[in-house]
Each structure stands twice: as structure tokens, then as C-alpha cells.
């Protein structure tokens, strides 16, 4: 029998170091957070107490208003998503390798990354002074936030597209617009539509959170009734939000699956 010479395995020092650092940060974070651990013991009882207040006798008469406000939030999400799509679509192409010069490409990418790093609620607060406490502020904040993710997903999808049809459109004399339309777009459509729907789902959830700063919609209503300590209404609002959000997620998710599989 021949003796196998097994190549010595390279030790992943980088990985080990990273693990140790992450572990240290996690433990350190626990230590530094000033938590009154004694109160933790009360937590289950407190949670039960509030759950009881909210759901033992929900104020069903508020359902129509809650639905109306939820609709407002969904509309905010929808408008934000559509504006986000319109902005991110051309910008995504400008960020894709092979379709724009490097300086443009990199500034686009940095722009997307900065947007992704800022939560929508901060964006909303930032533009609040210009647009006021209106649903439009919420929609615009969501639109800007969407550009960050849709732009990134967009250029990644474009760069991952089958190069064959691109080459064929170029070889038959197509200009850059025609190459995008007939060489890139047919392969990228399912990805794009799927990203747009997914971002809409995210925006539906975010729109409820944006209500907290008072731009309207279900989040706004939720904050008010929490401040009034009208727990029976708060319970109804939570039920409505959960059902509507899950419903939209389910429908949009089903469409996305069909798009991805039906290709």
C-alpha cells in the first residue's frame, strides 16, 4: 500500500481571530449594558399583565378606523416602493460593471451603501423639516431607503446575467440601450420583479414603524393609543397590523415564488 501524502491543512488564523474578537464583543456588551437584572424576574408577570389588558376584551369598534389607517400605511409603502423602483432602476445600471465607467460605478455603489446604513426613520426625520409631518414624508423616506437596497440588488443581478445574449445583441449592431433591453433585460426580469416585491414587503413593515414619528398611518394611531393607555384598542391595532402584514407577505411571497420557479 502506498502512503498517501496529505497536504497539511492551512490553519485559518484569520477566522479564529475573528471568532475570538466577536466573542469578546458579545460578552463585553452584556457586561456594559446597565440592566437591572432583578427586574427581569418580574418580566413574565408584566408581559402577562399587558397581554391581558390588550387582548382580554379587544375594542372591536376600532377595527374600521384601524383598517383605514393600515391602508394609509400600505399606500405609503406602495408609493415609496414605486418611487424607489423608478430611481433605483437607472442608477442600478450605472453601478453595474460593463455598463458605466468606474468612477460613476463606484460613486453609485458608495451612495447605495450609505443609504443602506441609515434607517428609514432617520431619513424621515432628516427630510421632515422640508416635507412636514405628512404621509409623503414617510413615502419619500421609504423611497430613498429602497434605492439603497434595490440599487445594490439591481447591479448584482445585472452583473450576474448570462453574457451570451449581450454578446449576440452587440454582434448584431445593437447600441447600449438596445443591448440592455434585449441582452440584459429578458434574463434579469424575474430577479428584478422579485426584488421589487420583496422590497414592498419590507416597506409595508417599515411604514408602520415610520408612523411613530407622526407621519400618519397605523403606526401613528398605535403611538397615540399607547400614550392614552387604551390597551384594548392597542390590542386591536396589533391584531390588524399582524394580519395585514402577514397577508401581504403571503401574497407577495407566493407571486415571487411563481416568478422564480416559472422560468
Amino acid at each position: 500500500m502506498t502512503v498517501l501524502t496529505i497536504p497539511s491543512r492551512r490553519r485559518a488564523w484569520g477566522r479564529s481571530t475573528a471568532m475570538i474578537i466577536v466573542g469578546a464583543v458579545v460578552i463585553g456588551a452584556f457586561w456594559s449594558v446597565d440592566v437591572n437584572w432583578a427586574r427581569l424576574a418580574d418580566l413574565p408577570a408584566q408581559v402577562m399583565h399587558y397581554l391581558w389588558l390588550m387582548f382580554s376584551d379587544p375594542n372591536w369598534s376600532k377595527v374600521p378606523e384601524a383598517l383605514g389607517q393600515t391602508w394609509k400605511s400600505v399606500a405609503m409603502a406602495w408609493v415609496g416602493t414605486v418611487i424607489g423602483i423608478l430611481l433605483s432602476f437607472p442608477l442600478g445600471f450605472l453601478a453595474a460593471r460593463g455598463f458605466s465607467p468606474a468612477p460613476v460605478r463606484w460613486s453609485m455603489r458608495v451612495g447605495f451603501a450609505i443609504i443602506r446604513a441609515v434607517p428609514e426613520i432617520i431619513i424621515a426625520i432628516a427630510i421632515l423639516s422640508v416635507t412636514g409631518l405628512t404621509p409623503l414624508t414617510g413615502a419619500l423616506a421609504l423611497a430613498i431607503g429602497s434605492v439603497g437596497t434595490l440599487g445594490k440588488w439591481g447591479y448584482e443581478a445585472i452583473e450576474g446575467v448570462d453574457p451570451g445574449p449581450i454578446e449576440a445583441t452587440r454582434a448584431s449592431g445593437g447600441n447600449i440601450a438596445q443591448i440592455l433591453r434585449w441582452g440584459v433585460w429578458p434574463s434579469a426580469t424575474p430577479d428584478f420583479i422579485s426584488f421589487w416585491l420583496y422590497r414592498f414587503e419590507i416597506n409595508v413593515r417599515s411604514s408602520a414603524v415610520l408612523g411613530l414619528i407622526g407621519v400618519g398611518g397605523i403606526g401613528d394611531m398605535l403611538t397615540s393609543y399607547t400614550q392614552f393607555r387604551e390597551w384594548s384598542t392597542v390590542g386591536v391595532l396589533i391584531i390588524v397590523v399582524v394580519i395585514v402584514t402577514m397577508g401581504i407577505d403571503a401574497i407577495s411571497g407566493a407571486i415571487r415564488r411563481r416568478i422564480v420557479e416559472g422560468t
Binding site: G164, P165, E167, A168, S172, G183, P186, S187, P190, T263
Partner: peptide
């Protein structure tokens, strides 16, 4: 000039 490729290079979808 028409061009034909080994991998067909059609937009499949």
C-alpha cells in the same frame, strides 16, 4: 454581418 455562436446566445426567457 450575422454571427452564430457555439452556445447559441439566445435570450432564453
Amino acid at each position: 454581418i450575422g454571427m452564430i455562436f457555439q452556445g447559441f446566445n439566445l435570450a432564453k426567457r
